[in-house]
Design a protein around this nucleic acid. Structure first.
Lengths: 366, 366
DNA sequence: GTGAAAGCGCTAACAT
DNA sequence: ATGTTAGCGCTTTCAC
């Protein structure tokens, strides 16, 4: 057991130096592993450090070197498995290069994001990975970039900001999957997202999220290619909590011209949407077809298993961290920036349009 | 737009002081909001700071004050929604009190945990929340505690370490739910966990995880109370990846004296177990009953919905962070430490034992 | 190879 | 209320 139990003051290089009978500078060099140190001195210093249980003060070290070996990660919601997985990719990669991660949750709130970025900058992180809540309000990100601190965007891009962005081609996969729904006969396709907007949704409105507008663009293009009009009336944004999502789902699924297929914008929404469908007593895919973004393991367990759009989330986290660390270390960009693409995984939740719905609405027998 | 674009050196108090025509000390006081400063000086300093776009260097600040306003969080797997939720509770609470969170993932590996703790200490975090990978190998945690740095344990306790621990009473809920299974007629109950052990599982062996041994203890007690022998032969540890879990599941479900009920130790395992059961062509709960730890939203979506053991994970995260921050700020413990308990949520995955199985094994007609 | 001394940006005594 | 002077623990000239 060590002699003196709980000591107050930490032991410093000065202490080690004294114990090893060398100058503070030499001790620091030996401990910090830089400069020129004779084998003899190094051994004595290391022994003394061991003996005293010396631990470097990384704060002091960071102050001199200007590098904190820490990166800031700002996400909308760590509770969402999507970000959980991405974060895992980031932390795994960071650790491999000796970086730590400070994680901040913004709740998809831009004000919180602005604050988070400021705080992380004040803490002198070496770089930042941000999944921006808004693709439009991006002055704070621009300032990061202008200040010369490396920045990598995840999932969503920021308008007019030329920074490395790791994201999948949403318009493409949205086009592909919508086309699939169209070919299966669907024309009344609803889209439900949590994206918060100031005004109510209208056809051409400019959206805060590149991700969502790309998806809508993809859908519109698919409809246009089929010579059909995109059902703007079935787009539902501002899906808040579970109750709100359930209401919106009921909303698009009822009435004369109800949706025959529903697309859920992420895994969290999907849960409530499917629940609402079940509560309505509708069967998937017999009565209504269902498609969702993100391929979580549980989507294989439902009856029927769910058709999903799979994104390489973990790999994207890895890529974001790699790119950031590369920038931090001043290395040149890789020859080709890796392109990420989502894939449509057809399982069992998309079926043909039920006879009673569709183009022609028949008046009930009654 | 600001005048000089990307500057090299950061602006410091000295710069602000000069601009505001006051001493460095006065500027620092005004900026740091401490000491006595006249209204006049304060205004000039703040104006100058604004003008120069001054940002405090939190590293320097931390070095003097000794407080970094940062807490370290060490978990086994952030990808597991269980920890995702807990982390959310922690970060939400931390932010409210002005603390940041450095997150480290250990992959349930003790060596990584030891390292993580050391690094965080070196970074001078104000306190630590750890979900220990092992309840036995805890010297590194003891050293944290001895060094006087606040420490709170999450989910699992550490042998002989008297630190605040936020966890549910696992033995109790395990007893309760096992009793439920027994009353439903089950005697062959399998338990599957990812817990890694050095040696193969044997009846009385000492387990590394307080969580798992508590669960097994609860099960044994429930069996004893019913006057039955606990089927030690159906305990499966070291369930690694999805394939491994599937194999173990098949294993306990086949043969003469197969399990009639399976308990999955966490949400991640549960996914693979259910998949394996489905692949085996067995129906839940007609052929085999199923019970799992953690109440994730998706467990309501399967057919049938799954019977689960719900833990107040978010609240536990909140409690852990609150307790830690209280310790950091030197406030006394709350009158009564909050007790957390899990609850058995009976949905549809537990049913009566199928006629062909159970106590007496009948020789097939053949 | 080694040591003395000067910072890093800030807070904290200590005077005035 | 204000300014001067020391540090915090480390890295980094710059001499020797």
């Amino acid at each position: 057991m060590s002699s003196d139990g709980a000591r107050r003051r930490d032991v410093t290089v000065a202490d080690v130096a004294k114990a090893a009978q060398v100058s503070k500078a030499q001790a620091a060099r030996a401990l910090g592993n830089y400069g020129a140190v004779s084998e003899d001195v190094r051994e004595r210093v290391l022994a003394a450090a061991e003996e005293l249980d010396y631990r470097p003060n990384e704060l002091a070290r960071s102050m001199n070197t200007g590098k904190s070996h820490t990166i800031g990660v700002v996400v909308g919601d760590i509770e969402n498995p999507h970000f959980g997985l991405a974060t895992r990719g980031i932390t795994d990669t960071a650790k491999k290069s000796g970086f730590n991660v400070i994680l901040v949750n913004t709740d998809e709130n831009t004000a919180a994001e602005v604050d988070a970025v400021r705080v992380l900058l004040d803490k002198r992180v070496d770089g930042l990975i941000v999944a921006p809540a808004s693709s439009v309000e991006t002055q704070h990100l621009r300032r990061v970039h202008d200040s010369g601190r490396p920045l990598v965007l995840l999932d969503r891009s920021a308008e007019g900001l030329e920074v490395e962005t790791v994201a999948v081609d949403m318009a493409a996969i949205s086009y592909e999957s919508t086309r699939y729904l169209l070919q299966t006969g669907h024309r009344r396709i609803a889209f439900i997202s949590t994206l918060r907007t100031d005004a109510a949704y209208t056809a051409g409105m400019r959206l805060d999220s590149s991700q969502i507008s790309d998806r809508l663009d993809g859908m519109r293009r698919a409809f246009a290619d089929m010579g059909c009009a995109f059902p703007e009336d079935l787009v539902r944004l501002n899906a808040g909590g579970a109750d709100s999502i359930r209401n919106l789902t009921r909303d698009v699924l009822q009435g004369n011209d109800a949706a025959t297929a529903v697309v859920a914008s992420d895994g969290l929404i999907a849960l409530s949407v499917v629940e609402a469908i079940q509560e309505l007593g509708l069967a998937i895919p017999a009565d209504v077809s269902f498609l969702m973004y993100d391929d979580f393991a549980w989507t294989r367990l439902t009856t029927p298993p769910l058709t999903v759009i799979a994104q390489p989330v973990y790999d994207m986290g890895v890529a974001a961290a790699s790119a950031l660390i590369r920038q931090i270390e001043g290395r040149p960009p890789a020859a080709a920036a890796p392109e990420f693409s989502a894939t449509l995984v057809r399982r069992g939740s998309v079926g043909v349009v039920p006879a009673s719905s569709g183009e022609s609405v028949e008046v009930p027998a009654l």
